[in-house]
């Protein structure tokens, strides 16, 4: 793949096209400690919202705020119990308008 070109919007611009009503509490939590033992970290590239960020110490930083609530992360995760996954509280989370 080529890097961002002049016609390519940044990932932030891409996510800015999506409406999120951010809940006060996280609906997904990631146990960064168990991620340290994971060599694949498939969540990092597969998450369509790019919410999983590898840290320098081999762990994972996760932010729930722009989550599509799709389920990709827990399905590709190799580490039992690393991701605890549920839906956001009612009325919150992603709001599609032209999907």
């Amino acid at each position: 793949m080529t890097g961002p070109g002049p016609m390519r919007e940044s990932f932030e611009d891409r996510m800015a096209t999506v409406e999120f009503r951010v809940a006060p509490t996280a609906h997904i939590t990631v146990d960064g400690d168990s991620c340290r033992g994971c060599s694949t970290k498939a969540c990092v590239t597969a998450c369509p919202a790019n919410l999983f960020v590898p840290t320098a110490d081999g762990g994972i930083l996760f932010n729930y705020e722009q989550c599509f609530e799709c389920g990709t992360c827990y399905l590709v995760c190799d580490t039992e119990g690393a991701i605890s996954w549920s839906y956001p509280e009612g009325g919150h989370g992603v709001v599609f308008l032209r999907s």
Partner: peptide, 9 residues
């Protein structure tokens, strides 16, 4: 022009 990006399983 991109007006919405979306994803779903």
């Amino acid at each position: 022009e991109l007006v919405e990006y979306s994803a779903h399983l």
